[in-house]
Design a protein around this nucleic acid. Structure first.
Lengths: 350, 350
DNA sequence: TTTAGCACTCCGAGCAAGCGAGTGCGAAGC
DNA sequence: GCTTCGCACTCGCTTGCTCGGAGTGCTAAA
């Protein structure tokens, strides 16, 4: 848990910082030097701890709510703790099994599986959890079926690797037969099946449609269908566990709660929070002001990607008070992500 | 606003009750006899009002939080107010227009329209609003397309009148050709198109499939596809506006809030709240204990159906403190329901 | 450099007093 | 006979106060 020098802190300072953060996470009370020496065997007296704490405060790792109160970690303090001081946690075998069992309850439908994982994670983590649905443009195209409704109208149905059927109605200028549509469907399937949805670009779609002898209107309909499948520009988000936030003493203040509820409903904002974590292949933690909003300044966010095959397609996140058990939540999120990734194969259209 | 006798109350008692409820809804403070006579021109003195209030309390219409506090309406008081005393409200032309305009922002996709209407209603009503998605079994069946994937597997896609495509994968015991599937699709469409989904019963589906020369496995796949479309046994619910509840003084107490957030996440409970309103063709109001749960005892629920064609297919609801402006919220819910009903035609598969 | 001792600060719980709003009731008034 | 006035009483809420506890920082000694 400790090297000789961490982030410019000597061994003892680092240990004291770790202990303060640990204790504060556990109790939620500002931690004072005496309490610390009594509860943990630090090998030095409270006066020494006091001096060290004063240094840590000067270095920006700790803060004092007011004179004559104990110390509380600052963003930087948490950051150092998360990056260098805490001991990572692993889930036990029985916990893994429990997660797997509960995930099995969901039917093999994409939405249900995602929702189930957000519910599960929210409950296990005792915090607000949310899960982005798989990004549609990272999915691959499986089938399109153009269905004849009337001489000049039809429905296009697109099936992707995760079975998400998107549908769009279209109207044409010229009469067509059901056979025409079948022919075009087959041609599209032959050419594009297996490609990533984002690689089914407008130009190739148009070219293929025309080469089958259809006009601009049909080409536009085909493009629209693919755009509809691809352009759910920001994936849906399933959130769960907001009620747990009420248990946290930091939410006595109702205004904070309101910010959170508002954000929950604006999926846009919620999505922005995790959006940049998309680029990182591993877990990421954002602490306090790192979330980029004063409203969220005393919250932290743990984000873990889940995969479909090799590709990261979505994110599981936990939003909670800065004072959250980071190691534990990272373990829970990773465990859930893993199980979610596995279950995605149950809905895969092969 | 007033007959001579209302619910066993003489004219003056009824008027005083109405005024108390009105004032309490406006201020949230227990209302006393003096305050009432000062603010409203009752034509009698506070002492008389006091006597009347004592009677109303004895009759169960009012309650006293404690001696030396003003009166507060009881469930029965609100009930009488809603049923007989309040003057119904209508939306102004400009408000209607605003609602219509905002609903236009949503794309012509069922889910988006429903979500938009819950967002809109939540914002306008300043309370938690939720909207059930159209019950699938009241929708009519439009098209089924069985898509060939491999010799022994395929996808069945069902399109209903509101365009909700449900899809299900199937596996068969015997090889089939794409043409076989098209033939069966056409047969199913010819027979069932236009029927209510709930009238596409297992027996007729099986019979038709077999009469086309397919085996038990194919019949089972067809049944499963229709069941999947029909059996979303409890429709999804889109909720919005929880943060407004925080503005209400009655939610200072955090426990109440927790109950609500919990209920919000358990769609089951939320659905149960409006389920019996489904039978009523008009607006319904549930007050306090009428919601059937101690947790919700100081809330009220306004529910209004929306239609697709002639048929009521879903509900818009507003959940808020018992102390809610009933007439206004009923008007808002009705107005939104109307606009939602109109917009449903934009997604209709004709 | 660490520790012991000490004066000082500040928060928050607990208590008492005073205020204000409201009630109920008996007696007087229309 | 209903309505009103006057009055004593109740009760919760706010304000101000005290006091204890926890914690700090500083100084001097080990």
């Amino acid at each position: 848990m400790m090297e000789n020098e961490v982030d410019g802190l000597d061994k003892r300072k680092a240990y004291i910082l770790a202990t303060v953060v640990y204790e504060y996470i556990a109790t939620g009370e500002p931690v004072g030097s005496q309490a610390l020496t009594q509860k943990y065997n630090l090998g030095v007296s409270s006066a020494t701890v006091r001096n060290e704490m004063a240094d840590l405060e000067a270095g920006g790792y700790l803060e004092q709510p007011h004179t004559s109160a104990g110390r509380v970690p600052s963003d930087a303090g948490y950051r150092t703790y998360v990056d260098a001081l805490m001991s990572p946690e692993e889930l036990g075998a029985d916990e893994r099994r429990r997660i797997r069992d509960e995930m099995r309850d969901a039917r093999a439908q994409l939405d249900e599986i995602v929702e189930q994982s957000s519910r599960l994670l929210g409950r296990l983590a005792g915090n607000l959890a949310f899960v982005t649905k798989p990004q549609s443009d990272t999915q691959s195209f499986r089938y399109v079926q153009l269905i004849w409704i009337a001489e000049r109208s039809g429905i296009a149905i697109i099936v992707t690797s995760l079975g998400v059927a998107s549908q769009s109605l279209f109207e044409l200028r010229n009469d067509l037969s059901p056979d025409d549509l079948t022919r075009l469907s087959n041609a599209l399937n032959a050419t594009f099946a297996g490609r990533l949805l984002r690689d089914c670009d407008d130009r190739s779609l148009t070219a293929l449609t025309k080469s089958c002898g259809f006009g601009d209107d049909m080409a536009a309909a085909v493009r629209a269908a693919f755009i509809g499948a691809r352009t759910q520009e920001q994936p849906g988000i399933s959130a769960s566990g907001a009620q747990h936030l009420l248990d946290q003493p930091e939410f006595r203040d109702v205004r904070k709660l309101r910010s959170i509820l508002r954000i929950l409903e604006e999926q846009r904002t919620l999505y922005d929070l995790v959006a940049d974590a998309f680029d990182s292949p591993t877990a990421s933690v954002k602490i306090g002001h790192e979330l980029g909003s004063e409203e969220l300044a005393d919250l932290s966010l743990v984000t873990v990607p889940y995969r479909f095959g090799e590709r990261a397609v979505g994110m599981l996140s936990i939003l909670g008070p800065r004072r959250m058990p980071y190691a534990r939540l990272l373990a829970l999120a990773s465990g859930t992500a893993e199980t979610l990734s596995e279950r995605l194969h149950d809905v895969e259209v092969k």
